[in-house]
Write a protein that binds this DNA or RNA. Structure first.
Lengths: 119, 119
DNA sequence: TAAACACTTTAACAAACATTAAACTGTTTA
DNA sequence: TAAACAGTTTAATGTTTGTTAAAGTGTTTA
């Protein structure tokens, strides 16, 4: 038996079997990494959690998280650049909210996962 | 009209309206941030993309990404600590694969989102 | 139009992170 | 049991990141 049977991934003793891969475009992978990276900070994730319950302006978020507006603004900038948020000015205030349903689902899914494997 | 009507989030001129929030446990938020943070690096995300198509051992991943085994091992460690992977030794080799369907869904969803907003 | 308000940007700095190279651990084969 | 193989860990280094404080922008009210 020169080489082992089917299974998608088995190392031959001397060389590896080629796998069939769905190769995504580099830009997509980079954008996705940027998205995850933006969510990968506990303070920014807390902002997302607040925005989960509806739009907020910067000063509301600052108040609710006991942080300076400067800090909130910088965190929102990172989330916004990762295309996770919508922005809308209303008079003096600028309201932020989750970009779309994809983002809502992504967050729900991740929180749910963390909750389940909470050994 | 002393204060404006319903909408979940409107700043009063002088003070903010309390919002009703679904507050998740701190541990859940922290675990979720760790998960996102692990995925928030393009090289680790590439590993996840490869594992999307089935289990791989460390040397296969090293070969397919043109990286040293040491580097792959360290990247896998971070993904594994974030509970994104399963690990199984078979003889000389250690096979890694995606932890569960949640993770598969999370990745699909994120890639899809990145693909859609690809203006 | 000047002052106040809401928010953003910049620069400086400390803390966290990714990579390299080398030493180390565990499993298998000779 | 010794050598080879597959993978992990450690320490050192340079880079990136998050925070603070201060200056700057745009909108609204007096």
């Amino acid at each position: 038996m020169p080489n082992s049977p089917i299974p998608g991934a088995v190392c031959d003793e001397t060389e590896h079997r080629p796998h069939t891969h769905i190769k995504r475009a580099d830009g997509i992978i980079q954008d996705t990494a940027t998205l995850f990276s933006a969510l990968g900070d506990i303070e920014r994730l807390r902002l997302m959690e607040l925005l989960f319950d509806g739009p907020h302006c910067v000063s509301e978020l600052a108040e609710e998280t006991q942080s300076s507006m400067s800090l909130i603004s910088q965190r929102l900038k990172i989330l916004n650049q990762a295309k996770l948020l919508k922005r809308e000015r209303k008079g003096k205030h600028i309201y932020y909210s989750l970009a779309d349903k994809h983002i809502v689902d992504l967050l729900s899914n991740a929180f749910e996962h963390a909750d389940e494997i909470d050994e």
